[in-house]
Design a protein around this nucleic acid. Structure first.
Lengths: 149, 149
DNA sequence: TTCGTTGCAAAGGATTTGCATATTC
DNA sequence: GAATATGCAAATCCTTTGCAACGAA
């Protein structure tokens, strides 16, 4: 699917989500969604806030936080913690479920992120659900390396 | 190994680590290490700070932070992020490498933690190292559930 | 018009930092 | 005695909250 179609599609998903939950369809929410899906990277709140500002669509940081929370609940983005105190986000639709290899520099800062898929995770998950008699709602798997890329 | 022996052993490891790195052997550092290894649970900074205070061995929060950082570098504890903004820690010596299932309540607070081991993680790791030609230094794998335990 | 959302600034929680004091070496 | 670690408080970073103004329904 080409990018404009993806954006159209996630926009519709957000429309439906807001109708179902009786939320208001503000410009800010749709613009932020569009910016995220136009961008091919993982980002933190400041990255997104600055990107919006530089693109001439400044919104308050509170709105960035509110909207990210909304998009998370709508299942349109995912949130990550890479061994530091900052939350990172990424789009999640039309984007296979995947895990991450995090490349760290000397100071432990995130230098690069590589995605991978491995079906063995799903089999571990299925086994745990059976053994513990629980329903697993999600997982986070991060491998860390200091190798240069 | 019985607990007193474990504590003796990790104490020696810390002694060596401090000698190798020309760090000072303060009471606080050894006491905190002992408290952690006497305790069978995952904890955050406040849990440990309060535990020390209630046990009549009060130290400042800055010292708790500093010492946890030191113990991390010495490989004597591990640090985790369970989808919230708090860091959790656990002892890591004489304690198999393992991963975690996190039980969350309605508000997303950590209610319970179950540990598990699965060799499939190591095989995924080995494959990634080969494919990406990197050296993986560690990983974090967390499964999340809202089931009651 | 109504009521949810935005924006701003203040508050909050976790962690770090600066500096005087205490302690190890 | 020299130099590092501790303790306290202030500072910082990330995130949440309160409230007036705005805008969608």
């Amino acid at each position: 699917m080409a990018k404009p179609e993806i954006i159209k599609s996630v926009t519709e998903i957000l429309h439906k989500y807001m109708e179902q939950n009786k939320l208001r369809k503000t410009q800010e929410r749709f613009q932020i969604l569009k910016f995220i899906y136009d961008w091919d990277r993982h980002f933190d709140v400041d990255d997104l806030y600055n990107h919006l500002k530089e693109s001439g669509f400044a919104v308050s940081k509170a709105t960035v936080y509110n909207t990210l929370e909304l998009l998370l609940e709508a299942g349109l983005i995912r949130k990550h913690h890479f061994r530091n105190n900052t939350s990172y986000y990424e789009k999640s639709y039309f984007n296979h479920s995947h895990d991450h290899v995090i490349f760290l520099d000397e100071e432990g800062n995130v230098k690069e992120i590589v995605e991978f898929c491995d079906p063995r995770i799903d089999s571990i998950k299925a086994d745990l659900e059976k053994i513990l008699d629980i329903n697993i709602t999600g997982h986070d798997l991060y491998f860390y390396t200091k190798s240069k890329k």
